[in-house]
C-alpha cells in the first residue's frame, strides 16, 4: 500500500516528455529513500530490543529452535530478489517479457515465503507452549521469592522476540506483495510501455530492502538459537 502511494501522481500539470519523466522519477526515488530510512529506524529499534532482551535474560534465555524450513524461506526470498532484478532490468530495457516474467516470479516467490513463514510459526507452537510452561513456572518462582502474586501467564521472551520480529517483517512483506500484484497487473495490461518503469523499480528496491532486513533478522535468530 505504501509503495503504491509513493508512485507520484503528477503534481506538475501533466506535460509528458523525458525531462518530466526523470523529474517524477527522482521525486519517487527520494520518497522511497525516506520510506526506507523510516523503516530502517523501525527495524533498528526492533533489533536493539533483541539485544537488550538477550543481554538482560542471560542464562534465563530460552534457546529458540530454528525450524529447518526457515532456510528454505530464506532461499525463496533471495531468489525473489534475483527475479526482482530481472524485472527491474526488464523495465529499464523496455523488455516486456522479462518484466512480466520477473514480476510474476517475484510475486509468487514472495507469497511462497509468507506461506512457509506461516508454517514455521505453527511448527514452533508446541515448543512455544513448553517454553511458556517453563516461563510461567520461572515467573511464579520469582514472584514467590519476592512475596508477591505471580502473573496469570507469561511468554518466554525469546519466542516473544522471534514472533515479534518475524511478524514485523512478514507485515512488510505483505505490504510489498500487494504493490507487486498491482504493478504485475498493470504490466500485464500493457502499462509501462515505452517508459523506464520507475514505479516497478521502486517496488523492487523496497523488495531488496526486505531481503536485506530478513538476512539481518536471520542472523539475530541464529544468535537467539544458542
Amino acid at each position: 500500500m505504501m509503495p503504491i502511494s509513493l508512485v507520484p501522481t503528477d503534481p506538475g500539470g501533466g506535460s509528458g516528455g523525458d525531462a518530466e519523466q526523470a523529474r517524477r522519477g527522482s521525486i519517487g526515488a527520494l520518497g522511497m529513500v525516506l520510506l526506507l530510512a523510516s523503516l530502517s529506524v523501525l527495524f533498528a529499534s526492533g533489533i536493539s530490543l533483541f539485544f537488550l532482551v538477550r543481554l538482560a535474560d542471560g542464562d534465563a534465555w530460552d534457546p529458540l529452535p530454528l525450524p529447518p524450513s526457515i532456510w528454505i524461506a530464506t532461499l525463496l526470498l533471495l531468489f525473489s530478489s534475483a527475479t526482482g532484478l530481472l524485472a527491474a532490468s526488464g523495465a529499464k530495457r523496455e523488455n516486456r517479457a522479462l518484466l512480466i516474467v520477473g514480476l510474476l516470479l517475484t510475486t509468487i516467490l514472495g507469497a511462497a515465503f509468507l506461506g512457509i513463514q506461516w508454517r514455521n510459526w505453527q511448527e514452533l507452537l508446541p515448543h512455544f507452549r513448553q517454553a511458556e510452561q517453563r516461563a510461567t513456572e520461572r515467573a511464579a518462582a520469582t514472584a514467590a521469592e519476592m512475596g508477591v502474586q505471580p502473573p496469570l501467564r507469561s511468554i518466554p521472551r525469546s519466542f516473544g522476540v522471534f514472533y515479534m520480529l518475524t511478524a514485523l517483517h512478514a507485515a512488510h512483506v505483505i505490504a510489498g506483495v500487494v504493490p507487486l500484484l498491482w504493478v504485475t497487473g498493470r504490466a500485464l495490461m500493457g502499462a509501462y510501455r515505452g517508459t523506464k518503469g520507475d514505479g516497478v523499480r521502486r517496488v523492487i528496491v523496497y523488495w531488496h530492502f526486505l531481503d536485506v532486513m530478513w538476512l539481518i533478522l536471520l542472523g539475530l535468530l541464529a544468535i537467539g538459537a544458542t
Binding site: A37, S38, R138, A139, T142, V148, P150, P151, S154, I155
Partner: peptide
Amino acid sequence: VLATPVLGITLLLLLAERLLGIGFFDSELG
C-alpha cells in the same frame, strides 16, 4: 520520519505485552 517508527514499535510492544504477556517490560520475567 525518523522518530515516529520507534513510537510504532513501542506501542506494538505495549499491546503485545498487555494482550499476550510477553514480558519485555515486566520485571517478574526479567
